[in-house]
Amino acid sequence: MKKLTLLMFFFLSLSICAQKYYTKTGSTEFKASVQAFEPVEAKNNSTSAVLNAETGDIASLLFVKAFRFRVALMQEHFNENYMDSNKFPKATFKGKIEGFNASEISSSKEYTIKGTLTVRGVKKEIETIGKFTKQGKKLRLQASFSIKPEDFEIKIPKIVSKKIAGTINVNLDYELVEKK
């Protein structure tokens, strides 16, 4: 009987904990606008992310060329001059959500996310607060953080440096679904 109970608990815990959540269409947007100048912002709606609910490990990947700007020329300059996206097509993040526990999230809960962001081959440690919200079967992750172009060796020519903010705000909005 004890063995049966133990086995039952084992399987029960498996079904609660061993879950992976993912998205293929996460939204990552950044804003680097300076007031009174042309808005510098773009959105990437094809971010991939995988979250292991058991360990709290999270990894995400996006393709730089999938950032959509309102103005074609700005998108071209972004890819060719600043991001060199032919050479560095991806930006990735690998990190951990501290103390993540999916069952604790009744409606929404905030956790600290720490990890490494790699852009243009340059790695930087990032720490931010992620807000996790349960929406039916989906788990929504929203987070914001700031980075500087020089953190990733992105050189902004002096001529346009006044039009691009020194600090870039990045906003994430990922709707994660369970992996079956």
Binding site: K24, S60, K65, P89, T92
Partner: peptide
């Protein structure tokens, strides 16, 4: 073609 997503191991088109 956006690229090959090695996180989810699939080709991505948008």
């Amino acid at each position: 073609v956006i690229g090959y997503d090695d996180l989810l191991e699939e080709l991505k088109l948008d």
